[in-house]
Design a protein around this nucleic acid. Structure first.
Lengths: 355, 355
DNA sequence: CTGTTAGCGCTTTCAC
DNA sequence: GTGAAAGCGCTAACAG
């Protein structure tokens, strides 16, 4: 509609202006693979500057087969846990010059597998997946095409040919529940558990049960509800509306803990005096709700860093279980003013699975 | 290390297997631009299926100059407001077959401008920016290269050649503060204000001041603090530790409102009985803290949808101001059990800037 | 140290 | 309705 179409400047323009070949431009842009005379290089850089040349990443990707882009798929990127995870992954990626393609599956298995296929199809250099449905969904078309590593970020079992990370949720849950039992003297502890959809038992549930069993505590109510705030709220309403309501409850996510808190407040149940609450995840939100939640915190940034490193350094697949930190705040009944933190030692608590 | 290198299947393989030319494969894959006989098309599709062929997006992008990727830059993707915004943008993008590259600037102006340049350099088809620093940072190298539209999502003033969106924060703030003043009879309302770093006054502050002025309310304390939970907490501590503490306060973000709530709880100040709180943003977190926050909610999904549409449909740049919804909950002192929502009419409240 | 050149996989014009 | 072929911009042999 206006004047001259300002054709985008290409490597050939730079070469022409600098009076060199395109190869040389490539060498100075990429700082290799062949050496370039200092003076020539300076001339090229000047030309680049002058023309405002930027390499075309598509061309580069086409040639190299590598995009400099990572993919991340989570069930819900607005859940603070995944938001924080995403932020850390993005940091780790940016620090290495990579960009991050983010996708949320809304916990929908089919959407999740479509997103995975789409990202793979976009030639990401690596895919990080906090899978709603466990790791089995690798099979669609589009997966074949790429050799890009796929890392499962919330996967308690090793998977052939993939890196699998998980937090030691069992140890974390056990420590939390045990704290309620032995320090605060609760007879038993109820559980609000999210809809874990992976093909093996959830560590949080295992840890909860284990702590109860170890203490010889009687069976306690378990309510299943979504991992979000509303799930915790409604689960809490159910849990607290019975004649003999529990005196302590473990929520399988921060968000559920927050919902639980709301339910307690609405029902006029005082926390922690009449009801102790502990939660799993340890996002910032758990620190600022009221009362602040005693929780087991996942080492999100460590996981993010490790995952990106595996991809960038093309490391062999590993199965890693990350320690979890128990953070004592007020919701359990501890009188702390300054919070205290203790790391839960995985190695002591979790025997190697014999797979 | 293992056997045969399974060379990735290309369009030529499909063509060979189907006994057609590569052009035809292209026609059926893209459903155009030339027609293909039904039977031929079927044969091609079969070959595609059989070989598990996936088009190479880099090659496509190189040829077309278009990547099917959008970029989003926010100050902090773990802030629930931006997390929710990101999720909505992602939804809108995915619905149109686009992917989303996300980046957080940590409110760092330099990092922000580097991220913008990087994303532009990656040939995104459009860039959505919730800029920490206003829209002026368009100038770096790397910006020139692309014609991709840049949309500013939180920009109260029109900017030449760009779409600019904003929520009508002034009207929202005014409605909130006025509610405190006229419905609940507070003499004045304090403000906890984030570090707005754009080159014009912040609408929230304007609205607050305006409501105060209109009511002839005396000057009220204003404390500046970061937009996050900690900012609200520390701002709250300062605000509430003076001899004659305010009876009502407006927080410029949900997160600050949450921090404020914590400060009040810690200080034993009862909300809303001794202190009324209202906040701006309206994320989910504001609904589940205690007491739930009366707030002005931004229409995040509407904004996301509109922004993506502008890019996809290559619409002309516009300046849009989105209405904001006031949601009455308990923190202001209203006795509601069911929350009530009222949209604040922009057109009535905000005169057109004469720029 | 520098230049020439052959593709990477795809789209699309132009001929048939 | 289909095929041949010319690039898109870049990298990295290979030849000088």
């Amino acid at each position: 509609m206006t004047a001259k179409p300002p054709r985008v400047v290409t490597r050939a323009d730079v070469a022409r202006l600098a009076g060199v070949s395109t190869a040389v431009v490539s060498y100075v842009v990429n700082d290799g693979p062949r050496p370039v005379a200092a003076e020539t290089a300076a001339r090229v850089r000047e030309a680049i500057e002058l023309l405002g040349y930027r390499p075309n990443p598509s061309a580069r990707a086409l040639k190299l087969g590598t995009t400099g882009v990572l993919g991340l798929v989570v069930p819900d990127s607005s859940n603070p846990f995944f938001a924080e995870l995403g932020l850390e992954v993005e940091r780790a990626a940016t620090a290495r010059g990579l960009a991050l393609l983010m996708a949320s599956s809304n916990s929908d298995i089919d959407l999740e597998s479509r997103l995975l296929a789409d990202l793979m199809g976009r030639q990401v250099d690596g895919l990080l997946v906090a899978a709603a449905a466990g790791p089995q969904r690798l099979t669609g078309p589009g997966i074949r095409r790429s050799q890009a590593p796929v890392i499962y970020l919330d996967c308690a079992r090793p998977v052939e040919a993939h890196s699998t990370f998980s937090s030691d949720s069992e140890a974390g849950a056990r420590a939390l529940v045990d704290h309620l039992l032995s320090v605060h003297g609760h007879g038993t502890v109820a559980l609000v558990m999210g809809n874990h959809s992976q093909p093996w038992p959830d560590g949080r549930e295992l840890g909860w049960q284990g702590a109860l069993d170890d203490a010889g505590a009687p069976g306690a109510p378990l309510v299943r509800a979504p991992f979000d705030r509303r799930g915790g709220y409604e689960g809490g309403l159910r849990l607290l509306s019975v004649p003999h309501r529990p005196s302590a409850v473990f929520a399988s996510s921060d968000l559920q803990g927050v919902g639980l808190l709301r339910a307690a407040h609405e029902l006029g149940v005082s926390v922690p005096d009449e009801l102790a609450i502990v939660a799993y995840d340890g996002t910032q939100e758990s620190e600022y709700c009221w009362p602040p939640l005693t929780c087991a915190r996942q080492r999100v940034s460590e996981m993010a860093e490790a995952a990106v490193k595996i991809i960038v350094d093309a490391e062999q697949p590993v199965h890693r279980v990350f320690d979890v930190d128990v953070i004592i705040r007020r919701s359990c009944g501890c009188p702390t003013t300054a919070q205290s933190v203790a790391s839960v030692q995985t190695s002591l608590a979790a025997p190697r699975p014999a797979e």
